[in-house]
Every structure is written in C-alpha cells, then in structure tokens.
Design a binder for these strands. Structure first.
Length: 556
DNA sequence: ATAGGGTTAG
C-alpha cells in the first residue's frame, strides 16, 4: 500500500502521461481508495482534469468524505478549463451554501470563467462578492479581474482595479500591461512599463509580450525594434512566447525580413511561431513564401494543426492556381483533419476563390456537421461567383436548420447582392438584419450598402445613408463612395467625399491619387495637376502618373 | 510535513 502511495505521488505530479499509463493509474486509484485521502484527492482530481476525464473527477469529488477548499477549487477549475462554464458556476454557488468559504483562488478561477464565457453581468456580481468577502485588496484576485475586464473590453475598469490594489506584484503589472496591449494602447503600456521599472520591478516574458501586443502597424516599427532590443538585453529572446510574438509583431508591421531573421535565429520554433511567419508572408502578399515555409515545416517532420492549415489555405486561396490548394486538401485528408470546421470552411473559401466553386460546394456537402461559419464560407463563395439567389437559398437553409445567422452571414449576403447588382434584395436583407435579427450594422455592412446603391446609380442615396450615420464615420465607408464616384464619373460629389477623407484618414496619399484619377477621368486636368503637385513622394507620383494615363485613355 | 492559483503567442 505504501508503495502505491509513493508511485502515485510521483506520477500525479507529472503533467504529461501516456494514455496507457493514465489508465493504469486510474485502475490503481480505484483499487487503493487513495482518493479518500484529502491530500491525494485534490491531486487526483487535477490528474483527471489534465487527462480530460471530467466524469471520474466528479465521481471522486462526490464520493469524497471531506471537501476541503483545495478540493472545491480543483473541481471548479477542472470544469472551467474544460469550458463547462455552467457547471463551474453551479458548483461555485453550491460551494457558497456550504461551510467552506471560497478563497482568493476560487474567485480567481470564477473570474476567469466569467471572462471566457463573455459574462459581464456575472463578472460584476463576482467582483462584488470579492469585495464583500474582504479579498478586494488581494493581488491574485486583482490580476484575474484586470485580465477579465480587459478581455471584455473594459480597460478603464481594469485600470481602476489595478490602482486599487496596494501590493502590485509582477503578475499584476503584467496583467495591466497586457490589458493595454490588447486594446492597442501601446503608449499607455510603455508608460506603465517605465513606472514599473522605477519601482525596481524586473520584467519577464509576459511583460514584453504584453507590450508587443499593442503594436499593430508599420508606423510603430521603431518601438517594436526598441522592445526587441530590450528582449535581447534581458535574455528573453529564447522564450517561446516572446519569440513568436516578435515574429508576429514584425509581420503585422510588414517587416518580413526582420520576422524571418527572428525566426531563423530560433533553435526549435514551435507551431505558433511557424504559423505567425506563414500568416505574415500571406498577409503581406507573398503567398509563394507562405507556401514555401509550409513545405519546409513538413520537411522537418512537424505536423501542422488546424489553425496553421487554415492560414496556409488562406494563402493558397490568393493564387490563381488551384494546384497548391489541392495539395493542402490532400494533406488534410492524409492527416485526418477534415472534420475540423475551421479547415473545411477555409477549403470552401479556397476553392471558390480559385474559381472551383463546385469543389467548394462538394466540401460543404460532405461536412458531417455544418455550423454558421461553414455556411458563411459557402455564401461568400456563391456571392463571388454572382450566384446571389443560390446564396439566399443557403440563408433560408440556415434558418430552417435552426442556426443563427451572424454579422458575417449578412456581410456575405450583401456582398453577393453587390456582385449581382440586385439593389432590391440588398435593401431588404439589410433591413431584416437590423429589425429581425437585431444585428447592429458594422463598417463592412455599410461599405457594401454604399457600393450597392452607388454602383447602380443611387449616388445620392448612398451619400445620404452615410450622412445619417453617427460620427465618426469609418473612412472605409467614405472610400467606398469615392470609388462609386469614380465609376459613375461624378467629380463634384467626389470632391466633397475626398474632403471628408482628407480630414479624417491617415492615408491621404491614396485618396489624393483616387481623386486626381477621377478629375482626370472627368477632363478636369488642371484640378488633377494641382492635386498631383501636392505630392512629394516618388512612389505616389508614379501612381498619379498611372492615373493620368488611365484618365487619358478613357477620354481619348 | 505535504496541497491549489492569478498574467503571454499563431
């Protein structure tokens, strides 16, 4: 018996176990009644949770003679980690009815569960509970609260919690820095970083990751390079998380050379880092490189997962040739990954973008389980091929199957109307989206509506639609109208629209080019020239030159 | 005597 205790103790503290060893252990646990020991009971619950056996965990919990705080926490955590939030909450309320008081760890776990299930009401309630039970100043509860509020988009609330906590440890600093990073406020993150340094707190990998997360476009590249330098100085560049975030930061900033340099300096990049690099090449338009690195990954004998495959498929969808996409499809079948909804949806998109809508439809039809994402992919493909009525038939099928259309469904449907030029159905589905499905239209919906109305001669109506929107109006929407002005050859309205864009957008150059293009198309050469003279950058001059050529060939 | 936990990436 004592030997068994010893063996179990050794094995249970390991995170990874082979399946057969886990089964042996399970048998041993049942035989020894070790689970009646309060100390081992929590360890065993943890063991079951790690191995995905919630059923046994619950059984053990229910049969346990004495339920300590430890045991309660581990069973709640087991459910929360398996995303069984309902069960986790009901266990928590059950715990409140016992003698045992929840402690800071219990609350931390429940707080996280609230944010992962997007339950703001619940989070506020639990926050009250924390305060009432006298844990309002506890740094463990606070870091969980900071993260939870930021995940739900309430970064100011997160900040209040942070400043309300007297003992700010490293984890709490990291939580608030990540909170600001997550919403793109890198400057605030850096400010906190310097505050933290002035208090002699040493940053770690989490800190750097939080700071890097906030950098999202190429204008911030110098900040990113500075942080990269900091990583090297702190010897954090070998940390797997840090290096993958460096790769994705450089990718977001369109610095693929730097991204590749970081990548190739790694001893054994993990799947996330590979996928950051591949996605980076794909998003900067270098689809060939994206596929090349996917090939390299395979040659190193590594197995891609569904997220990586979906990203490679997005690259394959952008090449005119369907060949690479087919190869990836074969890879998916060989590795038995075809049941992943994300992969199937990416396959549908790839085939339809490469012109093989039939193959896309086929993939859709043989999917064992279709969800709203797969329907959205198919509708997008149908729309791309001008088959608006087919797209609407799919929409009806969604409703018949009791699925709930989401904002992407309507984006795809409106796109289908744009391609087919059917204003009436577009108007109708836009109305139903708002009234019947209570979906607040977003930028992309307005962009499609503006294009749909504007392209079919309803420039005035499109303009009025934009004027009815609350400020600030996204410049993509104005841009769509400018495009329509170009197509309809209306340079007066284009002038007004461009003015709005010059006021609000940072990409003045591109809109100047478009406007001068419209002027040229309308024969207003002097106005076009005046605009062109404003531009100093060589590249922009080149583009303007092209627009002159285009305008000239149109009027000739 | 032992025990659990809060913050990171594609």
């Amino acid at each position: 018996m004592f030997l068994h205790f010893h063996l179990l103790h050794l094995d249970l503290s390991k995170v990874y176990l082979s399946l057969s060893r886990a089964k042996q252990l399970h048998a041993l646990i049942l035989k020894t009644h070790l689970s009646h020991d309060p100390f081992y009971a929590t360890r065993i619950v943890r063991f079951y949770a790690v191995n995905g056996d919630l059923h046994s965990a619950c059984k053990l919990f229910d049969e346990s003679p004495s339920q300590s705080v430890y045991l309660w926490n581990s069973i709640i955590r087991a459910h929360a980690q398996a995303h069984k939030f309902e069960e986790a909450f009901s266990l928590f309320t059950k715990m409140l009815r016992t003698e045992i008081r929840p402690d800071n760890f219990t609350y931390a776990c429940i707080i996280r569960a609230c944010s992962e299930s997007f339950d703001l009401e619940g989070l506020k309630l639990v926050h009250c509970g924390v305060t009432v039970s006298g844990l309002g100043l506890d740094s463990i509860c606070s870091s969980a609260l900071v993260t939870a509020y930021s995940k739900l988009g309430l970064v100011d609330e997160a900040s209040r919690v942070f400043y309300g906590t007297p003992q700010q440890d490293l984890v709490l600093w990291n939580s608030i820095i990540s909170a600001y990073g997550n919403c793109g406020r890198w400057d605030k993150g850096l400010q906190l970083f310097s505050e933290m340094r002035s208090m002699e707190m040493m940053p770690d990998g989490y800190t750097i990751v939080g700071l890097l997360l906030g950098l999202s476009d190429s204008s911030l590249i110098t900040i990113g390079q500075g942080l990269h330098g900091l990583c090297l100085k702190c010897n954090l560049d070998s940390n797997a998380h840090v290096s993958s975030v460096l790769v994705s930061m450089y990718s977001r900033c369109m610095c693929m050379n730097s991204a590749h340099r970081v990548f190739s300096g790694l001893f054994q990049p993990d799947l996330v880092t590979w996928s950051a690099l591949i996605t980076g090449y794909s998003q900067s338009g270098d689809y060939g490189k994206a596929l090349f690195f996917f090939k390299n990954l395979n040659m190193e004998g590594k197995k891609a997962d569904s997220i990586l495959i979906a990203s490679v498929l997005a690259a394959a969808a952008q090449i005119a040739n369907v060949g690479p996409g087919c190869e990836i499809h074969a890879y998916v079948l060989r590795h038995g990954l075809e049941s992943h909804v994300m992969i199937s949806s990416a396959l549908i998109a790839m085939y339809s973008k490469c012109g093989f809508l039939g193959m896309g439809t086929r993939v859709f039809e043989i999917m064992p389980e279709k969800n709203i994402i797969s329907y959205n992919s198919l509708i997008l493909g149908l729309g791309l091929h001008g088959l608006a009525s087919e797209a609407f038939r799919m929409f009806d099928e969604i409703l018949r199957n009791g699925l709930k259309p989401d904002e992407y469904t309507f984006t795809a449907l409106l796109g289908a109307c744009c391609h087919a030029g059917i204003v009436k159905d577009g108007r109708e589905i836009f109305r139903r989206m708002k009234d019947e499905f209570c979906i607040q239209p977003r930028t992309e919906h307005y962009v499609h509506m503006v294009k749909l109305l504007g392209m079919e001669g309803g420039l005035e109506e499109a303009y009025n639609l934009i004027l009815s929107l609350p400020e600030p109006v996204d410049c993509g929407i104005w841009g769509a109208l400018l495009l329509c002005c170009d197509v309809c050859g209306n340079s007066e309205l284009a002038e007004i629209v461009a003015q709005r864009l010059f006021e609000s957008s940072s990409e003045k150059g591109a809109y100047r080019v478009m406007l001068s293009n419209i002027y040229a198309g309308d024969g207003r050469w002097d106005d076009a020239k005046k605009l062109r003279d404003h531009m100093t950058e060589g590249k922009l001059r080149k583009i303007t030159g092209l627009s002159w050529i285009k305008g000239f060939s149109r009027s000739a």
